[in-house]
Computed example of a mutant assay.
Amino acid sequence: MAGTETLDRSAWETALNQVTEEHQGELVTIEVLDPEVGHQYEADRLPFTTIVYDPKDDVVAVSVGGQSPRHPVVLRHLVSHPTEIDVATQDTPEPAVRTVDEDGTATLITFFSQESGAES
């Protein structure tokens, strides 16, 4: 991702909490880029809830939905034992977070404003 910053593990929890605060009310796409299976969408422009890093369980959890009658269920995507987290700077057209797990599978979380034309 252009304009990204690879974070030190000590900054993951704080940085992802900040991403959650900055992107409340936006839509999110979650793409899994598995070297063996290929590129798959897990969520496409659903209402963003949170992204957090839990150091105790060594897991990144991304939650979408659960905030409206249209999307009443919360979907959680987990990245166990991440080895890398990159956060796109605010200078990029579409802010994003990329995580890589110990098997080399990358998860790309891309944020879109509500005005981007997708339904919420």
Score class of each variant (00 low, 15 high):
26 E>K: 07
26 E>Y: 05
26 E>H: 07
26 E>S: 06
26 E>R: 09
27 L>V: 08
27 L>R: 12
27 L>W: 09
27 L>M: 14
27 L>H: 10
27 L>G: 03
28 V>E: 09
30 I>K: 02
30 I>W: 00
30 I>V: 05
32 V>N: 09
33 L>K: 15
33 L>W: 14
33 L>G: 12
34 D>A: 09
34 D>M: 07
35 P>N: 14
35 P>A: 15
36 E>Y: 10
36 E>Q: 14
37 V>N: 13
37 V>Q: 13
39 H>E: 13
39 H>L: 12
40 Q>V: 08
41 Y>T: 07
43 A>S: 10
43 A>H: 06
44 D>Y: 10
44 D>E: 11
45 R>W: 02
45 R>I: 04
45 R>C: 02
45 R>T: 02
45 R>H: 11
46 L>M: 07
47 P>R: 06
48 F>D: 02
50 T>K: 01
50 T>H: 05
50 T>A: 04
51 I>P: 01
52 V>S: 15
52 V>L: 14
53 Y>M: 03
54 D>K: 13
55 P>H: 13
55 P>K: 11
55 P>T: 11
56 K>L: 14
56 K>E: 15
56 K>T: 12
57 D>Y: 11
58 D>N: 15
59 V>Q: 09
59 V>W: 06
60 V>R: 02
60 V>I: 14
61 A>Q: 14
62 V>I: 14
63 S>F: 00
63 S>P: 00
63 S>N: 06
63 S>C: 07
63 S>Q: 05
63 S>R: 03
64 V>H: 01
64 V>D: 01
65 G>D: 01
65 G>T: 01
66 G>F: 01
66 G>D: 08
66 G>S: 12
67 Q>S: 08
68 S>C: 11
68 S>I: 06
69 P>Y: 03
69 P>I: 03
69 P>F: 04
